[in-house]
């Protein structure tokens, strides 16, 4: 027990910091989707008649590339709203 701060508040604050750190995972999909969109723009420039096919492939690939970012988001949401660490502390 620190002075002037309860253990519960400390755990909640650390959970919030952890949620913020988890969202760093958003960098990866950002770079990946940017790369994919750039390549798709190049492909449309080279072959404008295949634009529909390229858009479909791009959206599907983006969705799959997004998965790691979504994992980070889900962990952040769980830390903030489900608060497993606080529950674990209260059950000690």
């Amino acid at each position: 027990m620190m002075q002037g701060i309860t253990s519960e508040a400390f755990i909640l604050g650390c959970s919030a910091i952890g949620a913020g750190l988890a969202m760093i995972a958003g960098i990866g999909p950002g770079i990946g989707q940017g790369n994919a969109a750039g390549k798709a723009a190049e492909a449309v420039g080279r072959q404008p008649e295949a634009a529909n096919e390229i858009t479909r492939t791009l959206l599907l690939g983006d969705a799959v590339a997004e998965t790691t970012g979504i994992y980070g988001l889900v962990i952040a949401i769980i830390l903030l709203f489900v608060r497993p660490l606080l529950t674990a502390y209260l059950n000690l």
Partner: peptide, 16 residues
């Protein structure tokens, strides 16, 4: 797991 989390994360992030 990835299939369900993808849909769930996208919709829930919008709601939040």
């Amino acid at each position: 797991i990835s299939l369900s989390f993808r849909l769930f994360g996208n919709v829930l992030s919008g709601v939040i």
